[in-house]
Simulated assay, not measured.
Amino acid sequence: MAPAPPPAVSFSPAEVQRRLAAGACWVRCGARLYDLTGFVRHHPGGEQLLRARAGEDVSADLDGPPHRHSANARRWLEQYYVGELQGDPQGSVENGTVTSANTQKTDPWMEPKLKMVDWDKDLVDWQKPLLWQVGHLGEKYDEWVHQPVIRPIRLFHSDLIEALSKSVWYSVPIIWMPLMLYVSWSHYRTLAQGNVRLFESFSTEYSVAMPESAFPGLFVLGMLLWSLMEYLIHRFLFHMKPPSDSHYLIMLHFVLHGQHHKAPFDESRLVFPPVPASLGIAFFYIILRLLLPEAVAGTMFAGGLLGYVIYDMIHYYLHFGSPHKGSYLYNMKAHHAKHHFAHQQSGYGISTKLWDHFFHTLIPEEPHLKMQ
């Protein structure tokens, strides 16, 4: 017979109030208490939205409006469970007492699944590197990888390879911005010489001169081309569904992108490490160089390289930043959070929704059920 689970820790309203006064952000669903202090700056709706609800029952807020929280978001909440509130659970905690409030009745179909997160019963052993384990998940992999957790991931046994698979956010501008500036200046000087012609390899008669005034347009075109690559890579490579009977394709998917969906706030895995980034950047340059004259290809490559840096910086900020409500990045943060927690097969744009509009993969608007 399995041992009974340990009793839940209970907190008096006065204890909760003391923690709130000290700056903690505790909320509750009924009598269940959650410490969201470490999550407030990651919240897609903004830190102030959560802070304003500190000490309150957020059961109705989970159903919206403005946003109906997904099953993954509710499961995510359970990772912050700390215990039970003593006394009558109706209302909010104020001045050491629980004050009554007229809380909106929630749709029973949307009630949170109030279960503790049990790491010991997960499909993998979190005390060991995950890469070699996920290949054996088979048909369970797709559901498992799209149930995010708030913990770091270790992929490899080797400390060296593990270190190479991680990167700090500021490594991206430090490594790639100097290269972008050098390539830009070098090819601008080549264009300024006035002897670069487009399509010259196909037809001298119909070739087009490329003066230095074409540099800004080519540079912006390179940025636009990168945004398309960003979308296509994210949609068709990162979100491929590996066959359940292929251990190695499952492992490949997990290395490329699955680990990010499993642990979306592992900050060491939010931007591309230099080695794999170098391979992708080299591929981008080779394709351009095969199709275009060196100066034209180089200028577009420089624009694409800046686009990549912006993409990685925006991606990091969407996870760890707290943009001003109503701003472009605020909307993109909410858009990206929905991609992670509810709509993994849409909303592929990170820095822009342009290609989601073009290819009809926008995340659908949420209809809110009216509460009776």
Rank of each mutant, 00 (worst) to 15 (best):
P3S: 14
A4E: 11
P7G: 01
A8S: 14
V9D: 07
F11E: 03
P13R: 10
V16P: 00
W26P: 01
T37K: 10
V40S: 08
R51W: 04
D63H: 06
P66M: 06
R68W: 11
S70I: 05
A71M: 08
R74K: 15
G87H: 10
G87M: 11
G96A: 05
T106R: 05
P108L: 13
K121P: 12
D142P: 00
W144A: 00
Q147I: 02
R151V: 09
R151N: 10
F156G: 03
S167W: 02
P173Q: 04
P173W: 01
P173R: 02
I175G: 00
L179V: 10
M180L: 05
A192L: 09
A192P: 00
V196S: 05
S203E: 05
T204Q: 11
V208R: 15
P211V: 00
S213H: 09
P216E: 15
G217P: 06
V220H: 03
L237W: 09
H247C: 13
Y248T: 11
L249C: 11
F254D: 02
K262P: 04
P264H: 07
D266H: 13
S278Q: 08
F283I: 06
L288N: 05
L290D: 09
M300E: 06
G304T: 00
Y308N: 03
I314D: 09
L318N: 04
S322P: 00
S322V: 04
L329V: 06
H339I: 03
Q345T: 06
D356G: 09
H357A: 10
E366N: 14
